[in-house]
């Protein structure tokens, strides 16, 4: 029983932290976010490091690593708040890898692994997927409707950009009359997407907590640092509790994906529900610690807060994941129980 990262896992974390700190300065992130743009050069470098295929098999040009490594990497992308189609594209390759036909896999996986193609996944309700990340630039869109799904090429879908509060990521509404059906059950992939999203939220929470703690040490009022007031310091302690708990839940869920898949659904819902709540609470609590400056456009905190809030709603809200936990933990399905 050991939660310690292996040397390789540590190297992934360190490389990602250093690389992103070096290549994505806060001014650049702000410029991208304000323009609703992504950095093509950065994307090519990320792909060059193998990140876009970290979880895909070597046959398809991936690194052949697992959900744990993907979570470690995604946490760092959240920590650096990188504007990029990374998560959307990884989501698509997860679904194609787990549920795609042989033909779909050979057509898409190596292109997604190399970053040459971009993919995304949308959840359909009432005939359309209302909020799909990065659909406007995707080459391939996977639309999931309950337990069935289809692969749609960009040209075959109706794509309508949607404004959201998260300007570091682009969203669109997607509708497609037809596509090629998936061959298998998309649920295992969907669970892995939830875990990756939870990992991104952990990174965001970690960063927002660090910003709050640093500010609490430096900002003085009434002749002492505000961090000396318990109303502030206890907030920060709460941020630590929630960030670490979200990280524990996420790493565990990622580990089950690789080693104990029968526990994955429950673990993924626990991670996504907890990390979504923690992501929101930690970023909003960090804003409170910052006072007025935290409410300004000029301060970077709002980008983190908005991404956290938006992530929380994607691929199942905390409410729907808690519902699934209640069901799997022993209360049974809602419909049947409500007799």
């Amino acid at each position: 029983m050991n939660f310690d990262f292996t040397d390789d896992q540590q190297a992934i974390k360190r490389t990602a932290r250093d690389f992103l700190a070096d290549r994505l300065k806060p001014e650049r992130r702000r410029e991208l976010a304000e323009g609703g743009e992504y950095d093509q050069g950065l994307w090519r470098e990320m792909a060059g490091l193998g990140w876009t295929g970290i979880h895909l098999s070597e046959d398809h040009g991936g690194l052949g690593l697992g959900a744990v490594e993907l979570a470690i990497l995604t946490e760092e992308l959240g920590y650096a708040l990188v504007p990029s189609p990374f998560l959307a594209s990884v989501a698509a390759s997860l679904v194609v890898a787990h549920a795609g036909s042989g033909e779909q896999r050979s057509r898409w996986l190596s292109r997604l692994a190399s970053g040459e193609a971009i993919g995304t996944v949308g959840l359909v309700t009432d005939g359309a997927a209302p909020l799909v990340p990065d659909a406007d630039r995707a080459d391939v869109i996977v639309l999931l409707d309950g337990l069935s799904g289809m692969v749609v090429e960009a040209g075959a879908a109706e794509i309508e950009p949607q404004p959201t509060i998260d300007s570091t990521r682009r969203f669109a509404r997607v509708r497609a009359a037809e596509g090629e059906p998936l061959a298998g059950d998309p649920l295992p992939a969907l669970d892995r997407i939830e875990v990756a999203l939870a990992a991104e939220l952990v990174g965001i929470a970690q960063r927002a907590m660090e910003m709050a703690v640093a500010y609490a040490k430096e900002r003085e009022q009434f002749g002492r640092p505000i961090g000396a007031y318990q109303a502030v310091s206890h907030r920060c302690a709460q941020m630590l509790l929630e960030t670490e708990s979200a990280r524990s839940a996420t790493l565990y869920a990622a580990w089950t994906a690789d080693h104990e898949p029968e526990s994955l659904s429950l673990a993924a819902s626990m991670a996504k529900a907890y990390a979504a709540d923690a992501g929101w609470r930690v970023t909003s609590s960090s804003l409170q610690v910052h006072g007025g400056i935290g409410f300004t456009w000029e301060h970077d905190l709002h980008f983190f807060l908005k991404r956290a809030r938006t992530d929380g709603h994607l691929f199942g809200s905390p409410r729907s994941h808690r519902e699934r936990v209640a069901e799997l933990a022993g209360l049974g399905p809602l419909g049947l129980a409500a007799s």
Partner: peptide, 11 residues
């Protein structure tokens, strides 16, 4: 936790 883990100033 505030003082010894996060390094915030002592009250």
């Amino acid at each position: 936790i505030a003082e010894r883990v996060l390094g915030l100033p002592r009250m």
